[in-house]
Design a protein around this nucleic acid. Structure first.
Length: 160
DNA sequence: GCCAACGTTGGC
DNA sequence: GCCAACGTTGGC
């Protein structure tokens, strides 16, 4: 399991990597995920200290733009209980939360973002989930080998 | 903005 | 428990 790294998708119009860097301590709670497969990862599999990529979706071209570290383990997403939130889920109970999130901290910026076409073209990344057709899981596992290769390609600038 | 792919819901 | 209808995601 220490082999596992992650990829977190976000539409930059909603929340960009620049938005994360602008946060105090460059930390945010990754909320709003409303998919059970992604929920299971957030709740059970994504450990504190593991690393991930920040991916911009719904732009041209989509791309991996940043490196993040998980600084808080899975915990209930408060927006599910907030009637004023667009992520409100009336069927979720406080005593049995349905949706979870983790805390993410920006730790690196790709001087050279790695775009989806590049992810698809690289033989080194054969089989990577984000490049599969119809792959829309918003939180995905990335193998250590793929993670390292992408970091190298992206020429990561460490923050701080 | 379009629409294919996918996940969820609900009638039966 | 099946599956059609519906809603959403996300590449293009």
């Amino acid at each position: 399991m220490s082999d596992r790294h992650w990829l977190f998708k976000s539409e930059p119009e909603t929340y960009s990597f620049a938005d994360l860097i602008a946060e105090r301590e460059r930390v945010t709670f990754w909320d709003g995920v409303r998919n059970y497969q992604a929920r299971n990862l957030l709740r059970d599999a994504i450990l504190v200290g593991s690393k991930g990529f920040f991916y911009h979706s719904r732009i041209s071209p989509p791309a991996i733009v940043g490196v993040v570290e998980v600084v808080g383990a899975g915990r209930p997403d408060p927006t599910q209980f907030d009637p004023g939130s667009k992520y409100f889920d009336p069927k979720s109970k406080v005593e049995a939360p349905r949706w979870f999130g983790v805390d993410l901290r920006a730790v690196g910026r790709l001087r050279r973002p790695v775009s989806l076409p590049e992810l698809k073209a690289a033989p080194e990344l054969a089989g990577i989930m984000v490049a599969q057709k119809g792959s829309r899981l918003s939180v995905q596992p990335v193998s250590a080998a793929h993670f390292d290769w992408i970091q190298q390609q992206g020429d990561v600038e460490l923050l701080d």
